[in-house]
């Protein structure tokens, strides 16, 4: 029986997991569950579906680990599995999902109410309304910290397309932020 601590080297945990050590894999699950769930949630916009996708990603990873050669970082490999799982789920069915409080807040209302609104909450809310491709590219770039090249390979898209999606996504967010909150309110909150 082996004892693991939080600081156990990832390479050893991956290697032991590949040989069927569930305890080692449990440490990896603890280490990555937040990132994978957050990523899935931002892509799918629904807590239940995000949990299912994250769980499925770990199970797929467990099955595929004996074939993991370490050519990429384990984190990138896990993100790729999670991304593919989410995209596959998104293509299967698209139920109308009500945005919940973690994704952002409703900001309809009189202008004066915007004054105390959290700008970040408005932006998160607008991120959830972006087209899937833009949201996925922005999530992978800003949240997961992947490079343009890594995203391009993961999403099987030209790097120029990925860059354009990220740029257009940010431009849309900026425009919607300005439209919903108004510059006078924003200025007051941002420069207070």
């Amino acid at each position: 029986m082996f004892e693991y601590v939080e600081s156990a080297p990832e390479e050893a945990l991956v290697s032991r997991s590949a040989r069927g050590d569930e305890q080692a894999f449990g440490v990896l699950v603890e280490r990555y569950k937040g990132m994978l769930y957050s990523m899935a949630y931002r892509l799918m916009k629904d807590r239940g579906r995000a949990e299912d996708a994250a769980q499925e990603s770990f199970i797929k990873a467990w099955a595929a680990l004996p074939g993991f050669k370490g050519e990429s970082k384990f984190s990138s490999w896990m993100y790729r599995i999670c991304y593919n799982t989410c995209i596959s789920e998104l293509r299967k069915k698209r139920p109308e999902v009500e945005l919940d409080e973690a994704m952002g807040v409703g900001v309809e209302g009189p202008a004066e109410e915007f004054r105390n609104r959290d700008i970040q909450a408005v932006i998160h809310d607008e991120v959830s309304r972006l087209p899937d491709d833009y949201r996925a590219a922005l999530t992978l770039f800003h949240f997961n910290g992947l490079s343009y090249d890594e995203i391009a390979r993961l999403a099987h898209k030209p790097m120029g397309t990925v860059k354009a999606q990220i740029h257009r996504g940010r431009a849309l967010l900026k425009a919607r932020l300005l439209e919903r909150v108004g510059w006078d309110n924003l200025k007051e909150v941002m420069w207070q």
């Binding site: 569950k33 937040g34 990132m35 769930y37 957050s38 949630y41 931002r42 995000a50 949990e51 994250a54 973690a102 700008i119 970040q120 932006i123 998160h124 991120v127 922005l138 770039f141 800003h142 949240f143 940010r170 967010l173 900026k174 932020l177």
Partner: peptide
């Protein structure tokens, strides 16, 4: 926008 995107919180399942 960029600062908000860069500092998205990690959510817990």
């Amino acid at each position: 926008v960029v600062s908000t995107l860069d500092h998205q919180p990690v959510l817990e399942p």
